[in-house]
Design a protein around this nucleic acid. Structure first.
Length: 693
DNA sequence: CTTAGGG
DNA sequence: CCCTAAG
């Protein structure tokens, strides 16, 4: 049987396919854990050498140097790493030819959500940003490309192409500046930010990213087709299988930038970490660029590792993080698309476990358990790959085969000035990813939502058997206690940028807001011009900052410009594996409540006066286009409450009082549009009648 | 995806 | 705010 599980490292993020086979008789979870951990090397791919680089950091005097050092020197770090795994370690991970043997992590699908500061911030506990611009990598999936030549691989070469092989360039310019090095992989994904100080992380990233053969990072050299970018949902996940670790050397566990926090709630039944903890952790991890870029890595913590996947939560979060673009249309589109993805994600997360049926969704892999028949992964390429090895393993004793499709990496929060270059953005993101992946992870095993602590038990004893339904088996990633992360230099931003600090460009004003010429019935509505109001609404200034965010920022500040080495702790925060479909209530975290301000109400009223009820999407676009946190449903609901409020006595009203004037308008508009609707309802008949006649 | 409504 | 049925 094969367990196909999708491990979520955090709620979102990198997904790394992993396949594990463990004899049923194996010594308990330990075995499983070990296996999984071994697979974790995948993560190291990304993080790679960062750790090593860190150590060298001090030696680096200039970015350039750094680059040079890192690229060619890749092997060094590798050598150190001593991973006992079945993977082959290739001395030349970057060799293009190595593709066959190693699996690489590709940034195949990187879903970047960018939200500018004015945009609403996340409500999730880990919410973190407050800078001029913040970006949240909603889901970063680093799929391991199955490079293994073994089984037939999907025809899609691009996908299989190992990231490492991907050409990338390091912009000289940036390097010289010392701010950042821009390395582009395929020009599509990128990633890395280098602070002037050249944090180890950066270097690590570079190294990791730059193929050995391309010391200079000559982009042109490898004209590898960019890996396909797949949305997280649809990313192709390829099992790592054995190949996986090929690059092992390369991937020494680098804990770049990841710091561990004291473990405190180690055992949440769900294995979740306290928000505070997480926050602190994130804070530590956070690295600030040249002072202009500040990145926060927040690991969403999976409160519920055990509870069913908390996708809901994530979904919500995601929703909140809809990318925010200046272009309204674009923005909108994006929102929509994202929303879709959320849903999908939700599905994935929720169902993975139900896998008894085998494959669940195309891309989601979930666990397939099965009985003897072994459910193979059905999905895409991964399935193919798996097929190859499985059979051999099945003979004789019952074996529990686990195929971890992917691990997810928590959401990444990044802050970056709007003036930053795209290149720096990419770098920043990479850095964030690296920090997470390079932290040194270990695997925890969850069974029915409970952590299995006894490593000595056999799988059977633990209840993990080949013929059992394993849908409740989960894995979680947690910081590896044994591997203390290298010191991370956290460069603090000179000052934390608060939303207020950001200057909102005028262009942010939605055209519609500015143009009020076409007034509806209420066009001449009393009150100040909406323009200003609208603008205010759009921004997220009034957004509520979650405690976590605040905490994070605080911590960050504290650590600013200091090298902070924190011993790894066995925090079980990173994990998240869906366990069973539990009550949805547990899964989803409600969005935080954000009462409408008077200005918002006014904008809403004005929009409705003009557009009428029943056109919430338009209302949203018109007056709340930039208010990411206000969905059209929210607006509709608000209108509903406004109408209600308007009808009740002032004494009965609660919350921030809404000017009577506005309420009057609400009532008037409501009445007006109700009539309009009524008319429409009535009109048709006559027409029809006429036609008939 | 949007709407419309109930919860 | 959430959730859902409908369209």
């Amino acid at each position: 049987m094969v367990f196909h599980k999708r491990l979520e490292y955090g709620s979102t993020g990198c997904q790394v396919p992993v396949m594990i086979r463990v004899p049923k008789s194996a010594r308990g979870k330990r075995s499983v854990r070990k296996k999984v951990e071994d697979q974790m090397c995948a993560f190291d791919l990304l993080a790679t050498v960062a750790g090593e680089l860190l150590s060298e950091k001090q030696n680096l005097s200039t970015p350039n140097k750094l680059v040079e050092t890192s690229l060619p020197g890749a092997p060094k770090g590798i050598a150190k790493e001593e991973r006992n795994t079945e993977k082959k370690i290739k001395s030349e991970p970057y060799d293009q030819g190595s593709c066959n043997e190693s699996t690489l992590v590709s940034e195949d699908s990187v879903e970047l959500q960018i939200s500018y500061q004015f945009a609403e911030q996340t409500h999730s506990p880990k919410a973190t940003f407050s800078g001029p611009a913040s970006m949240c990598l909603k889901s970063h999936e680093f799929d391991k490309d199955g490079c293994s030549g073994q089984s037939s691989i999907d025809g899609n070469n691009s996908r299989n192409r190992p990231p490492e092989l991907i050409p990338w360039k390091c912009s000289t310019e940036e390097q010289s500046l010392g701010h950042s090095e821009s390395c582009e992989v395929d020009g599509e994904h990128v990633i890395k930010t280098v602070s002037p100080n050249g944090s180890a992380k950066d270097r690590g990233s570079n190294r990791m990213q730059c193929p050995k053969g391309m010391p200079n990072g000559d982009p042109m050299e490898m004209d590898v087709k960019p890996t396909a970018i797949v949305s997280s949902d649809s990313s192709v996940e390829v099992p790592l299988s054995c190949n996986y670790v090929a690059r092992d050397g390369t991937f020494s566990k680098s804990r770049v930038g990841v710091e561990h926090v004291d473990r405190d709630e180690e055992d949440n039944s769900s294995g979740c970490t306290h928000p505070s903890v997480m926050a602190s952790k994130a804070a530590r991890v956070q690295r600030i660029g040249d002072g202009r870029v500040r990145k926060l890595l927040a690991m969403k913590y999976w409160k519920v590792a055990s509870a069913a996947s908390k996708d809901g939560e994530f979904c919500n979060t995601n929703a909140e993080m809809k990318p925010f673009f200046r272009s309204r249309k674009l923005c909108y589109t994006r929102q929509r698309s994202q929303r879709t993805s959320f849903k999908r994600r939700k599905m994935h997360n929720c169902y993975p476990i139900s896998a008894s049926g085998g494959r669940i969704k195309e891309d989601s892999v979930s666990v397939s358990l099965g009985n003897h028949g072994l459910k193979r992964e059905v999905s895409n390429s991964s399935a193919t790959l798996h097929g190859g090895d499985k059979p051999s393993c099945q003979k004789g004793d019952f074996r529990v085969q686990l195929s971890i499709k992917s691990f997810k990496v928590p959401e990444l929060f990044v802050e970056i000035p709007e003036t930053a270059t795209v290149g720096s953005l990419k770098r920043t993101v990479m850095e964030a990813v690296t920090a997470i992946l390079g932290g040194g992870l270990r695997v925890g095993v969850l069974l029915q939502g409970k952590k299995v602590r006894d490593d000595s038990k056999t799988l059977l004893q633990a209840g993990i058997s080949h013929d059992d339904k394993i849908d409740n088996l989960g894995f979680m990633l947690e910081p590896n206690p044994t591997q203390a992360p290298p010191p991370v230099e956290s460069q603090e931003h000179p000052h934390l940028l608060l939303p207020c600090d950001v200057v909102e460009p005028l262009n942010r004003i939605p055209p519609s807001a500015a143009v009020t010429s076409n007034l509806g019935p209420f066009g001449a509505s009393p009150g100040p011009p909406l323009t200003s109001t609208v603008n205010c609404l759009e921004s997220d200034h009034d957004s509520v900052h979650s405690p976590a965010t605040a905490l994070l920022q605080e911590k960050t500040t504290a650590n600013s410009r200091a090298l902070v080495a924190v011993p790894a702790m066995d925090v079980e925060a990173l994990a998240i594996v869906p366990l069973r479909k539990s009550k949805r209530s547990e899964l989803v975290q409600r969005r935080i409540r954000r009462p409408f301000s008077v200005s918002e109400v006014e904008a809403l009223v004005q929009a409705v006066e003009k557009l009428g009820t029943g056109r919430w999407r338009d209302v949203k676009l018109r007056a709340f286009d930039n208010a990411k946190h206000r969905t059209y449903v929210d607006l509709k609901d608000k209108w509903k409450t406004l109408v209600h409020t308007a009808k009740i006595s002032p004494q009965q009203r609660r919350g921030e009082p809404v000017p009577q004037e506005l309420l009057d308008r609400v009532l008037a508009a409501n009445t007006y549009w109700s009539q309009q609707q009524a008319k429409l309802q009535v009109k048709p008949p006559p027409t029809e009648a006429c036609l008939l006649l």
